[in-house]
Design a protein around this nucleic acid. Sequence first.
DNA 1: ACTTGACCTTCCAGTCACTGGAAGGCCTAT
DNA 2: ATAGGCCTTCCAGTGACTGGAAGGTCAAGT
Lengths: 130, 130
Amino acid sequence: MNIGEVAERSGLPPKTIRYYEDIGLIKPLRDANGYRAFRESDLHKLAFLGRARALGFRIEDCRTLLQLYEDDSRTSAEVKRIAQDHLDQIEQKIADLSEMRQTLSDLVTSCAGDDRPDCPILESLSTKPG
Amino acid sequence: MNIGEVAERSGLPPKTIRYYEDIGLIKPLRDANGYRAFRESDLHKLAFLGRARALGFRIEDCRTLLQLYEDDSRTSAEVKRIAQDHLDQIEQKIADLSEMRQTLSDLVTSCAGDDRPDCPILESLSTKPG
DNA sequence: ACTTGACCTTCCAGTCACTGGAAGGCCTAT
DNA sequence: ATAGGCCTTCCAGTGACTGGAAGGTCAAGT
């Protein structure tokens, strides 16, 4: 398989696939003409990586997860710890964003949004809280 | 005021303040010794920027908001549009993260997290959905 | 006068995970 | 022979800082 087909089948752009090879996540073979020659196993890894990335795992976590996947002597505890840590971070992010949303949505609601200059949003940004 | 005092009073690290000068958000004066000499107005701008950043506005939006703040002929509609767009993006991000959280939390729950290798998390990552 | 330590300066590199673009080689069909 | 659609590498840019090195300045203490 050439990179175009793998890109289509994995859903990842060719650029990303080359990047993943650069950082050692996959090691496709090469044809005599220099083209990358992907095996089914490479495609499978790329799909794995795509799904892990879609869940928001950092690349280094993806690397670890892939290693664990290929390691018969892994324990599910190792995997779970990574996923739980990531889940914690996602929940923290949601909490932070929810606070921003609340503040912003209050400000947006209170702003007339007309052609006058008076604006509670700017007033809030320019004023010390408390 | 030197940068240290401004950093303390604005809550922004000196590095960030220098960076904001680099990209033209503030233009502090200079003392004869080359030290930055901040006016109260610089401090006020930095505090404004700090609050805007804390609400998650991108730097370029912060720049625009600061310009609008200083423009007597602004309209609140301009400000509101920026804030509303940002709010929309935050809500989109929360939606994306919430979906990740749901999936991840299901996976974490279903994983025993013991010393055996069987792991629904890895199985899910390695399997095509559908 | 000298030294110490806490400031301040600039500049360069690194972060993260790609993404865009340029310059050029290869393959297939006409 | 040429056109186009692949493929290759390499370099630079993204956003918003952050760390660190190398060196200048200032105030206080001895």
